[in-house]
């Protein structure tokens, strides 16, 4: 793996009545794409905001460290943190419809970032904005630069958001569900664009999604989150083809497969029973209330992460070493 760009250790984000993120550790290398996968409420979006130190109050980061490019972000003063945002770590949000200011032209909104961080004139900022619109493949950038957000389609707005994010050549780009609000054909285009930009600008990319279809194609590594914790981490192949954690296994089983019974007429689509809210107040493994394989010891402590190679899982029923040994013995 390339040099580490971002190293998150034991990150914890708390709101008054619950912990949104607990003991989360992961890292992103230079030029690497890390996908964080999880259902709504698993804490993945709050993780993204925590990296920018933009957790909405009353929530706040209560523990852990975020080391980015040799600096500890949790200890940075506000003014220094503002210099990181937009310039070194940039972010794309889920809703391109509402994430752009409706009363300012897109040119001004894109140029605003570069004017702020590089102190260039309005004219140069505008020229850069046109350049970036061209880079994200918006046709007729000279004309489009004076458009307002409501004059653009959803896919174009997300491209504008991307242009806005990469204009200062950030080292890390966080994309929080960048394609959720878009239709499928546009999704692929936007993801391909993000991947190209990552390579051209050698950015680290943190892709937050609940769409497992995206993961296999675009990610270098995958972190699976459930109820504020990381439950599994590994290469996309390992996660998609041979998941270890019962939650990940359930997710894979619940993903529609187009082979065979296309519309699930004969067999029902598998689902994971219950909902993520059942994890609230659980002392042991948060997945216990929904887990078919749960045992008494699962309720006792939060399972510590165990790893074999680069595949990591947090489940007491799973001992990668033992299994590897079994496989070796059997073979």
């Amino acid at each position: 793996m390339a040099t580490t760009l971002l190293e998150v250790e034991n990150l914890t984000v708390r709101f008054p009545r619950l912990a949104a993120v607990q003991d989360l550790s992961f890292s992103v290398g230079v030029g690497e794409t890390l996908a964080i996968v999880g259902e709504s409420g698993s804490g993945k979006s709050i993780t993204a905001l925590a990296l920018m130190r933009l957790v909405p109050p009353p929530g706040r980061i209560t523990g852990g460290s975020i080391r980015f490019d040799g600096r500890e972000l949790t200890a940075l003063p506000d003014a220094a943190m503002r210099k990181v945002r937009g310039a070194e770590i940039a972010m794309i949000f889920q809703e391109p419809m509402t994430s752009l200011n409706p009363v300012l032209t897109i040119g001004r909104q894109i140029g605003e970032t570069v004017r702020l961080h590089e102190g260039v004139s309005r004219r140069i900022a505008r020229a850069r904005a046109i350049e970036l619109l061209d880079l994200v493949r918006i046709p007729e950038p000279h004309r489009r630069v004076d458009d307002y957000p409501h004059q653009l389609s959803g896919g174009m707005r997300q491209r504008v958001m991307i242009a806005m994010a990469v204009i200062c050549r950030p080292k890390l780009l966080i994309a929080d569900e960048p394609t959720t609000a878009l239709d499928v054909t546009i999704q692929a285009q936007v993801l391909a664009l993000l991947d190209n930009l990552r390579r051209e600008l050698s950015m680290g990319l943190l892709l937050i999604t609940h769409d497992l279809g995206i993961v296999g194609q675009w990610a270098d590594r995958v972190v699976v989150m459930y109820a504020s914790r990381k439950v599994e981490e590994g290469s996309p192949d390992a996660i998609l083809d041979a998941p270890w954690h019962p939650y990940t296994q359930g997710l894979m089983a619940a993903s529609p497969r187009h082979a065979g019974d296309l519309h699930y007429r004969r067999t029902p689509l598998v689902e994971i029973p219950g909902s993520i809210t059942s994890a609230f107040g659980e002392t042991g493994c948060p997945f216990v209330p929904r887990c078919a394989l749960a045992e008494a010891r699962c309720r006792e402590v939060v399972p510590p992460p165990l790893s074999l190679g680069d595949h990591l899982v947090a489940c007491v029923r799973h001992d990668p070493f033992k299994e590897a040994a079994d496989v070796a013995l059997a073979g």
């Binding site: 933009l54 945002r85 937009g86 200011n101 300012l104 702020l116």
Partner: peptide, 26 residues
């Protein structure tokens, strides 16, 4: 509380710039 205010914060704008450039006009 709008999303574009969060976008402005993510660009690194100061609270004052966010208030005057993005919030007040709307």
């Amino acid at each position: 509380g709008q999303d574009y205010v969060r976008t402005a914060a993510a660009k690194g704008l100061s609270p004052r710039a966010i208030t005057f450039r993005h919030v007040l006009r709307n």
